[in-house]
Design a protein around this nucleic acid. Structure first.
Lengths: 196, 196, 196, 196
DNA sequence: AATGAATGAGTCTTCATTCAT
DNA sequence: AATGAATGAAGACTCATTCAT
């Protein structure tokens, strides 16, 4: 399988750096090849075409991303803790890899609609993880039980995504991970004053 | 001022339709000119370049969009009501103009980073409106007072934006406006079971 | 109509010279544009793509070629004379335009099968002209009446074509037109000794 | 000598099939190697380069082709009979090997000029065979003695070649061998009505 | 002798923008 | 003000050939 060969990883990693540094539209295949230390043609031994590099990049990185989140959350007891860990791990991972953050939050969104649909498919795996936590919270009677779950998971994702995108657009000048607590709090308790 | 001349509006409106129907990358200047009923060169009498059409389009449409939301919210009494009206009007307006929804949620995001920064500047006006409502809610002691307001407005926007984007990507097959109540509820009360 | 604009002709004529001098596979669009004195992009205002230049070139030149032959032959009385005039005019025209001869006999044949089918369609008009002469000869009882006419026209064309191709491959070092009499004689009387 | 090794023949035969089935321009070295059951690199142990495969293919197949024709014709008595046998055997052989017919009549002609000159050299052997028959006919006083023999052999070849090419382009939907008699007749007696 | 992974040169076409009319 | 013909820069991908094993 091509995916286990070292050049596959080399090219993916080169693509992340090149796209983060040059922007999506200035990331020619030849530039990626050069950064990866291979010939242009070699790219095409491992990827069908340029779009395939990007889809693979996203699948690869997001696969690990989601796996890590799944792993961290399962060790937690309550749905509330799990949700916090999800937000925290989401922020942590992107804060730890600035290049990847730029690529996922800004550059990859400039791709055409078709590619974005493929990306969305990868994200379905993530939405499923969120779903499970919400379900658990409802079973625990921690969360309200008449929630529109399809909508809830969108909103949870939307909140985190917007928070990260803002942080990237502000050139990562503040600490993203510190926001995890507030974001989590908003998710769970909303804006309202606790009713006593 | 060019902006008041009829052709300016003609071109902007043509651009919305052309981009919604053909996608960002298949919306050549010549196609927009044709739809607008003017010569290619005429475009450049009203806009500096292609990007300027898109920025102007966004400013124009978003200006009206925000104005309408401001107008609707000011007539409401409480911050809670205002927030609901904001979500409702946000959803209403995009549901009423499918072309515009496609353009703002999907197509314009494929533009380059530079254009997206300009678009973000336009959105600052919207974020200010949200800010004011949150402030009011805090003053009314309806909302918690230790909220990170910069973050809160991002999350509010992120929730609505994600909800609309999903609706557009699902090809607008369900009723978006009906979700306003749930989204508002999530914003205000979060996921948690009301504590009695 | 594009075909009447001066640049259309300019580009066609440039293509003939460039292809004759450089060979089919070394005739880049940019080379043709340069020789025609227009920008690369201008080519695409007049032709759909590179292949379209070649098909149009062939249609244009062959159209004139055949027209000229038709014109010359109609003024002759007998089928025998007409056939001679056909061969003579065929040879004359190609001998008068060395570039065109190289292109039609050698270079255009390197095109892909698809293009060659299109070229063959153009040649059908020529075969029809030959057909008419053969028919007339048969009616005049000059030619045998049990001839397979579809085959006969192929053979007549094949003889001329091979003669011209040989002349081009021998770098046009001998006089092609002088061969018209012998070729005509072979067509009409064959190899055999006249029986007395 | 490489030519006697089994892989040499394997590669040549694979090339004929691959080119006939895929066309000249879709017949990559790797495709030929795969069909021949050898590695890409192995091709270069037996052939200098891709062109050398094609030239060798032509030499090989045409060598046998011409040999067979020589063999069949020598057993005939008169030049007229020999010429008929030549046409008949020419048609027979190509009708018997459709792949080869496609390759020689259509696909190999798409090769570049250089390759076609080499192919022409191979054909000189064939032209010599034709020459001999014409000479014999003249000596027998069967054929006219003031014929331009260089031209005559071209025309004889041109007639057969055009007949076969047409048959291939018509997708071999009629019987080629049946045309041998008519073609021969045209060669020997021409179009003219026998003079009594 | 045989392999096959790696190489890297080479080109058609699109489309935002200009400018003579 | 309006036109639209003309411009020309820019990049993904293929495939014949090599060479370390």
């Amino acid at each position: 399988m091509n995916k286990d060969k070292p050049k596959y990883k080399q090219i993916i990693d080169a693509a992340v750096v090149v796209i983060a540094e040059n922007g999506y539209h200035s990331s020619q295949v030849s530039k990626i090849a050069k950064k990866a230390g291979v010939a242009d043609g070699t790219i095409y031994l491992y990827f069908k075409n340029k779009e395939d590099i990007l889809v693979s990049l996203f699948q690869d990185k997001m696969g690990q991303f989601i796996e890590r989140i799944e792993h961290e959350t399962t060790s937690k007891q309550s749905a509330e803790e799990k949700l916090f860990t999800l937000v925290e791990t989401h922020f942590q991972q992107l804060a730890a890899d600035h290049h990847l953050a730029i690529v996922t939050q800004l550059e990859l969104r400039q791709s055409n609609k078709e590619l974005r649909y493929k990306i969305n498919n990868v994200l379905k795996g993530y939405l499923a993880v969120i779903d499970n936590i919400v379900d658990e919270g409802i079973r625990e009677k921690l969360f309200r039980d008449h929630l529109n779950r399809r909508l809830v998971r969108q909103l949870i994702f939307g909140m985190m995504d917007e928070a990260v995108t803002n942080w990237v657009m502000k050139e990562q000048r503040y600490n993203l991970e510190e926001q995890a607590r507030d974001v989590h709090s908003l998710m769970v308790y909303g804006l309202a004053q606790p009713r006593s």
